[in-house]
Amino acid sequence: MAEVRAEMVANVWKVVVKEGDTVSDGDTLVILESMKMEIPVLAEDDGVVAQLKVAEGDVIQEGDLIAVIE
């Protein structure tokens, strides 16, 4: 199980995957936006998206949980 957390304060611009999706290492899970920059958040393992904790338009803080990959 791998937790994916936010590295910075950001807005969730786009959610690419949904719970139950199968993902591979390097796949984009969500795209954040901070200070006019797009920051893709990638899966760091192969697995299934067990939990997805953010929705488009959310403002998230550094360290917030974005997703859990199992």
């Binding site: 590295e7 304060v9 950001a10 901070s34 200070m35 920051i39």
Partner: peptide, 8 residues
Amino acid sequence: KRFFPGPG
């Protein structure tokens, strides 16, 4: 280092 946004 990476020039990623760091608001605060």
